[in-house]
Design a protein around this nucleic acid. Structure first.
Lengths: 362, 362
DNA sequence: AGCCTGTATCGAATCGATTCGATGTGTTTC
DNA sequence: GAAACACATCGAATCGATTCGATACAGGCT
């Protein structure tokens, strides 16, 4: 019966051959065949050749990654968790830059990047995808049960931004103090009526005027910190919450904030450069001159195509470097090390989109 | 001794608990514990509760994905292979749109997307990543050994564009005939000196003037087909090969093509909208009026931020729909079906970037 | 009472490879 | 010529779960 099974395994066209089948055909043991596929093991060249030939003849595709990863305890996969649909995540140049640095730093692991959308609902994948480590990009490492599940799994877990949490290595940015610098710049220029265009505060993702309730219910560390930085200087600034860092969202926000000529702000603090670009576009449409009638500052320091001739006043953050640091940390943790968290700082860039507020005639 | 091991497994802080440990603690068999984690199985509510409680007490994170995927033969991962560095892939709005449709269509699989860069060199991941299916986006399904390895693995394999190959389900686009339509449009307007700005022809990725040698050595189906479509109408068109679909690359190409005022083309066929945007930008810089002095057509039909006031004449392709079709095909193949390949067509969009060529005085 | 049905649970085989310790063979060294 | 050694190869245990067929038991039926 064993014989029959062996034959059927080797000959039935549907079933993929296994390493055992290859070994049998090459006339070596299971273990030797396995060794032959590695590069290191003590195998004679002749034997290795024989095994590889047998593999070729059987059309064997190499050791099954599933079995290999069970036995080895490593799967060669690093999970990247984003708190939105995958499609939206990749419209954000900052996230792309982070992934860029990340993939560069983990290149030595020879691992693939598994995209996981932590949209709250279908978080099935994220809890039972096999990965060797996970990176949270712009998600809250606390509060979240998927994240808790990953942590329980005991794999290295790093977060780009987001407040510190147990067992999560956080790479943070000076969101609050950097925004404060920008706000102080505006105040020094003489601005008093300032409005804020905010990134989403939670996963709700509707746009709305900023209210204390929304603010209190917020979970997005990045948005809240930048908000706090602005509030440090302009405690009463009004604001508008967008659904994401997109140019169109900035336009929508600016339309709402600039609607009433009486109460119109003289400056807008946008929480991202894309939002700022949208604000400027809206101002153009409304015939409001930037920076003469409206000053605009952004955040991120990404080059926005088509913003010319404007050179946005903004806070340049080292996004690629953040990703790289996270990647390096993962490599170190997988090697058994215990790297330290790191805080990154943004640099104020003075462009030509900020100026003194217009002097208002009596 | 067995006893000792069991104890050490349950108590040593480093080792993660296994399902067996949970079962033992709950006083049920291994198999019952497994059943308790599924939703379907015939388990009494009381037992399930007991198992889940034991799991909680042991801080068990749920069945190990590696073991599960070995046993089940499914890993819940769909590989996405792109022929460039991951960072570059995501700068291309068409690839993003494809991924978008893809992730939408495979949502029912509850699978994650594994990014794999087929850069020729470090193709280690792509050959031994565990995945249930693979999608090639803009890679040649022939010629490539990594792809051959995937095929040998016997998993569903679909390709977005690229010439047909055995065992690969291809979703194609009418690259050639669509480009021909654009070229005919230019000829109808009276253009005779036309230049082409081409996507990369192979993985070499250097920019250079287009030569017959480069063309003959090309492996990128998409670029070659679009080239052929242009050549159907303007057999002698000169061209410039870029390193990718980026605005800057279009600018570089246009600078090269527009350098000599004597031989300057009156129209440029760009193989992507981003390239076309770069061409227009270069023309602006050089003081060449579009469309009065230079007509420009693109390909893709993506909205390029900052191209305003231009409305690019282009070929709009159903990128999201291509991704969706690929995703649906994968779902069907994993269910044992044999879906048919599909050919998509692009739609000519007449914008304001094409016009009659300037009448050349005496 | 005897028989049958259905359900909850269990045992054991299985998925496909890796790896450790053991074995056997061939070569060097004194 | 025997002891020591290096090296290739092999057997068997192992990774951690899933699943199929068997079992036991409770209740319903005639």
């Amino acid at each position: 019966m064993t014989e029959v099974n062996e034959l059927s395994n080797e000959h039935s066209p549907g079933a993929r051959p296994t390493l055992a089948a290859v070994a049998r055909r090459a006339g070596v043991s299971n273990s030797t065949a396995s060794l032959a596929f590695g590069t290191a093991g003590p195998v004679s060249d002749a034997t290795r050749e024989r095994v590889l030939t047998a593999a070729r003849e059987l059309n064997y595709a190499g050791p099954d990654p599933r079995a290999r990863s069970l036995r080895r305890g490593r799967s060669g996969i690093v999970g990247v968790v984003v708190e939105e649909r995958v499609r939206d995540a990749f419209r954000d140049p900052i996230k792309l830059a982070v992934m860029d640095g990340l993939s560069e730093a983990i290149a030595s692991l020879d691992a693939g990047l598994l995209l996981l959308a932590d949209t709250g609902a279908a978080s099935a994948h994220i809890e039972d995808a096999s990965m060797d480590a996970a990176v949270l990009i712009g998600c809250s490492p606390r509060l979240n049960e998927s994240v808790a599940a990953i942590r329980r799994r005991g794999i290295p877990l790093v977060a780009i931004e987001g407040e510190p949490a147990d067992g999560v290595l956080v790479f943070s940015l000076d969101n609050r103090s950097a925004t404060r610098v920008a706000a102080e710049h505006l105040r020094a220029l003489g601005h008093e009526r300032v409005a804020i265009v905010s990134l989403p505060l939670d996963r709700g993702r509707r746009h709305a005027m900023l209210t204390p309730e929304l603010e209190a219910a917020g979970t997005s560390n990045t948005a809240l910190e930048r908000l706090a930085g602005a509030r440090d200087v302009f405690p009463d600034a009004i604001g508008f919450v967008t659904t994401g860092s997109f140019v169109e969202e900035g336009t929508i926000a600016a339309r709402a904030l600039l609607a009433d000529p009486e109460t119109r702000p003289t400056a807008i603090i946008a929480q991202s450069d894309l939002l700022a670009a949208g604000v400027i576009r809206a101002a153009e449409d409304l015939g409001i001159a930037v920076p003469a009638e409206l000053s605009v500052v952004g955040f991120d320091g990404v080059r926005v195509d088509g913003l010319w001739p404007y050179d946005l006043t903004t806070l340049a953050q080292p996004a690629v470097e953040k990703g790289r640091a996270a990647g390096r940390a993962i490599v170190e943790m997988l090697a058994g090390g215990h790297p330290d968290p790191l805080a990154f700082t943004s640099e104020f860039h003075l462009g030509n989109t900020t100026a003194h507020p217009p002097s208002i005639p009596g």
